[in-house]
């Protein structure tokens, strides 16, 4: 990665492609936890990589390139949510959870996709806070600053997200045993 970076800085197209190939699987894995449709994921990845190549000169090497790129991706996703006004943190009522399906238990990759689908069943506000706190490792303070909400709202949303997931797991487990 360190060998490619100087060439990426010079806008060398081959190096940019190699850089993209190294980062895109991870970034796609992250974006799948926030966005439901494949089209949305592709659009966000495209926007993110353009932003990465445009701002590669600002990368100072204080953290890993992957971490830096993931932050850019999350910022892009949050901008999209904010743009589309998809989430409303004032709404604290539980969503009605619809069980969509039969899941295979034989393939471990599908199990990962199961979990992602369960996360995506959460409301956008719960999903964002759950992902930021549990997976990305942000604190409630950081989330509050990032989303312009209070820390208590962040904590409440996280608690309700976990409750919902447990309910979903129970249902999914029931569905799986029936199938």
């Amino acid at each position: 990665m360190s060998e490619i970076l100087p060439l990426v800085l010079k806008s060398d197209r081959k190096a940019q492609y190699e850089f993209y190939m190294l980062l895109v699987p991870r970034l796609k894995g992250v974006s799948l936890r926030y966005l439901k449709s494949k089209e949305e994921v592709e659009d966000i990845l495209q926007e993110t990589f353009l932003s990465i190549f445009s701002n590669i000169a600002t990368f100072k090497g204080e953290s890993k390139v992957e971490t830096w790129a993931t932050r850019i991706l999350i910022n892009t996703i949050l901008q999209k949510f904010n743009r589309d006004k998809k989430y409303a943190f004032s709404d604290v009522e539980d969503e009605v959870i619809e069980d969509k399906g039969n899941f295979s238990v034989t393939d471990s990759n599908l199990l990962h996709e199961e979990l992602i689908q369960l996360v995506n069943k959460l409301s956008d506000s719960k999903k964002i806070i759950f992902n930021l706190y549990v997976i990305e490792g942000y604190s409630h303070k950081e989330i509050a600053e990032l989303l312009n909400i209070t820390e208590s709202t962040s904590k409440t949303q996280l608690f309700r997200a976990k409750e919902t997931l447990i309910e979903l797991h129970k249902k999914m487990n029931h569905v799986r045993t029936i199938a």
């Binding site: 894995g29 592709e42 997976i135 997931l165 797991h169």
Partner: peptide, 17 residues
């Protein structure tokens, strides 16, 4: 549930189109 999701989804990768 926190540790379960963190263990299983952190570092999850998927190939792009």
């Amino acid at each position: 549930i926190e540790s379960f999701y963190k263990e299983n989804l952190e570092g999850f990768e998927s190939l792009p189109s």
